[in-house]
Design a protein around this nucleic acid. Sequence first.
RNA 1: CGGGGUGUAGCUCAGCUUGGUAGAGCGCUGCCUUCGGGAGGCAGAGGUCACAGGUUCAAAUCCUGUUACCCCGACCA
Length: 570
Amino acid sequence: MRTTNYLLSTLREAPADAEIISHQLMLKAGMIRKSAAGIYSWLPLGLRVLRKVEAIVRAEMDAAGAQELLMPGVQPAELWAESGRWDHYGPELLRIRDRHERDFCLGPTHEEVITDLIRREIRSYKQLPANFYQIQTKFRDEIRPRFGIMRAREFLMKDAYSFHLDEASLRETYQQMHTTYTRIFERLGLEFRAVIADTGAIGGNASHEFHVLAESGEDAIAFSDASDYAANVELAEAAPPAGEPAAATEELRLIDTPEAKTIADLVEQHGLPIEKTVKTLIVKAADGGLLALLVRGDHELNAVKAARLAQVAEPFEFAGEAEIRAAIGAGPGSLGPVNLPIPCVVDHSVAAMSDFGAGANIEAKHYFGINWGRDAELPEVADLRNVVAGDPSPDGQGTLVIRRGIEVGHIFQLGTKYSSAMKATCLDENGTAQTLTMGCYGIGVSRVVAAAIEQNHDDRGIIWPAAIAPFELALLPINMHKSQRLRDAVEKLYAELRAAGIDVLLDDRRERPGVMFADMELIGIPHRIVFSEKGLDAGQLEYRARPDSENQNIPLEGAVDFIRAQLASV
RNA sequence: CGGGGUGUAGCUCAGCUUGGUAGAGCGCUGCCUUCGGGAGGCAGAGGUCACAGGUUCAAAUCCUGUUACCCCGACCA
């Protein structure tokens, strides 16, 4: 491809509303343009990347025996009514009506359509198991689309649905998809982790999310430095500390703390180590009253874990200040376990504390030197906090490291949620109808593009992993318009590279070198060759890989082989 | 949905307080010079100042309404 025949719409400055680096770079590199909030066009350069991601996903899904099909983007309301989701999906489902006043929606996912299709097509256990996938545009009317393509309303997704006669077969395909996803993200050249995920309302069955690791990720994930264990921080278990709490060495004392409203104040004004403080959080209880949850001052309450306690009201909700004062007689900032008039659950790490400080349940006073047993009965103990870096791994191997991740894939075992609602059955060996068991497996194809940039960029622009770069190599002739000899040499190599099947971009614009360098670095082409008169005199070209800062002189003769070797070495 | 902010040239923004008929830098077109890290000069093109109404002799500027977009929060995955 020649730049003079290609829409290379690079921008010097990114539009002001682009917040994260991938969004800025995708706009600056001319990959995407916005049509409306969360809705984008892909320019030729961006589409090349998207297609490369798609091709890898498709190849690996095919290799795993999945069959590609394509389902409609517009779906009839009847199917959603059948599964019950027409009423339950909420405003994220964009509903539309046709000229005959019939209801439809723009598909945010395709469980209904595939289940409808398969219940008609699959009659016998002999056709199972089967796994169908598509790569298709989805629409979710997000309340707040943001971060460009990362959290768009319209996005490209690979979604797959598998069908089985029993759980064992489902588990087998699930495991196979886990392996396939691992291969896909390895081939994409991204640093990623498969993490144990929340199974949500479906419950019970296994689920994993695949996260691309990047500082800007929306999810915190915890993984072991010594094993495969990885989980969303929301789900990672905090192991109870070993051993008994240390014996009391201090007397209980009531201290005036008029200026201490927060843990930070307490630490700063009274010289208490933060690990010797306790946070008391009040939530609504299942019985209609209030419940106190205690975590150490330096820990965070984990709402997912708290919501699982039987004593906690559903949905999980913090109590208001007025309610707290009515029940306890003191406001937030002065609460603690001593003389607490409401039920209480404490985190494991709190149960292990001694000689600690907490609110006195008296306005503007704290108790210091609190010890369980002596000053307050130890209440129920549970896992209530987010894990932190350095905690022991729940599988007993190594300690936890916390990184941020971008969710790009999700696999889970659906079971019979849709097949039973929609009566999708087939006959087993005995001729009896069995409700199909299902799994589903998604990859956010367009999000992968943004995630790859979040993980791989520098201050000059994008650094594409080789497998998904829009072009593999850039040819940059300097002052080609002034030298026919240079032009001939460039054209010759360009033709040879193309004949060798290399994805090459020839910058034949009459631009100054600085402009070419800046553009090629911005759009992230992994390899570049610079042609100059001076080099030709010496029979040499300059080669540089994208992240390097040094040029390498290579002989003009055999340049194609050299490039081939460089491409292969990545 | 609640709170906040912004809409002026393709992009980044000034002008608005104090009303007087539209600006800069970058980008774009042409010519000249330059030519190894986003060059310089000259000449151009390009704007219903988001939209509608109002006040006024006069509105980008003041007032009202609408709309779009952005940020924070809640929500969702």
